[in-house]
């Protein structure tokens, strides 16, 4: 009998069996989900301690044990001083490749309250990864509390749109030209319409945001990355090919994600399998965009003298 397994996502051997060894996975970036958001932030000292413990545990139990693994720095986002201190503490370990937030924040992400976190990330050359979920203290949709998980899940895509909008109009992207934001588990296909809508709004209301030096769509193309799972699935998969042609920046910005171990996991050899795309674009999506963003070393040649 094999040793009793812990829950999926908390057992390295099981992760290897179900994911890392089953497919040819070079690197996997972990995204620990920690209750250090608004819901867990009533006690900021506790939230900060929880984040420190999680990052230490991740390094010791996971990153030390498998060279394929990288991770994300979890921070108590609603207490900026603590969050910055944690970025400073962990960022020197190169196996942590991004600062991690969840999409449901107490204030829209462009709010100046959060800017020190972005400054710390940019200072260390780290992207900020923003993952589905969290508790910001607000109703789950822009129109109030939804009744069903279906609405909550699909509605997260709308929170991603709101956060992108807030970041673009806030001016932080002018202030930190090398800030890179990764939107994780929020979908991709909405970005074209949102960029149009923001440009249209900017034409009429730019007096309100005179700090912007460019059109909103230009910030989107330069500062935002997206991950596949749960990528939109149009009835005709070619709709996504057309979208990628119409928004060329997406070819360099979309990265495969698995959502392992959740209920809507995508396998690497299956995701967007029916979407016509060049081999080059597929390689970018599956490997090269993430390799460039997270500065992951290329694989050593097989005969590298070992």
């Amino acid at each position: 009998m094999a040793a009793r397994r812990r829950a999926p996502g908390s057992d390295l051997d099981f992760l290897r069996e179900q994911l890392l060894d089953r497919w040819p996975i070079e690197y996997a970036v972990l995204g620990p989900i920690v209750r250090a958001d608004q819901a867990g932030m009533r006690n900021a000292d506790y939230a900060a301690a929880l984040c420190r413990a999680t990052n230490d545990w991740t390094a010791r139990e996971w990153l030390d044990s498998d060279p394929r693994l990288r991770s994300s720095i979890v921070v108590p986002v609603e207490d900026t001083a603590y969050a910055v201190a944690e970025v400073e503490r962990v960022a020197p370990d190169p196996r942590f490749v991004q600062v991690y937030m969840q999409i449901k924040t107490a204030l829209p992400m462009g709010n100046r309250k959060y800017w020190p976190i972005y400054e710390a990330a940019a200072h260390h050359g780290l992207p900020v990864g923003v993952h589905f979920g969290g508790v910001g203290g607000h109703p789950s949709t822009a129109a109030g509390w939804a009744s069903f998980y279906l609405e909550d899940h699909a509605g997260n895509a709308q929170s991603f749109q709101t956060q992108l909008t807030s970041l673009v109009f806030s001016g932080i992207l002018d202030r930190l030209p090398n800030l890179r934001i990764v939107l994780i588990e929020g979908g991709v296909a909405w970005v074209q319409s949102l960029a149009w809508r923001m440009d249209r709004a900017f034409e009429r209301m730019h007096d309100e945001v005179p700090h912007l030096t460019r059109r909103p769509s230009e910030y989107v193309a330069e500062h935002f990355w997206f991950t596949t799972q749960p990528v939109e699935e149009p009835p005709d998969p070619r709709s996504l090919s057309r979208l990628f042609a119409d928004v060329p920046a997406l070819r360099d910005r979309v990265m495969y994600s698995s959502d392992y171990p959740h209920w809507d996991f995508d396998a690497p050899d299956q995701v967007m399998r029916t979407v016509p795309m060049s081999a080059t674009d597929r390689a970018k999506m599956m490997s090269e965009n993430a390799r460039a963003l997270y500065r992951l070393p290329a694989p050593a040649p097989a005969d590298a003298g070992e």
Partner: peptide, 14 residues
């Protein structure tokens, strides 16, 4: 409620 699911925005354009 805030007009977004993540709190009150800063600008009308948002």
């Amino acid at each position: 409620n805030p007009p977004t699911a993540v709190g009150w925005p800063t600008y009308l354009v948002e």
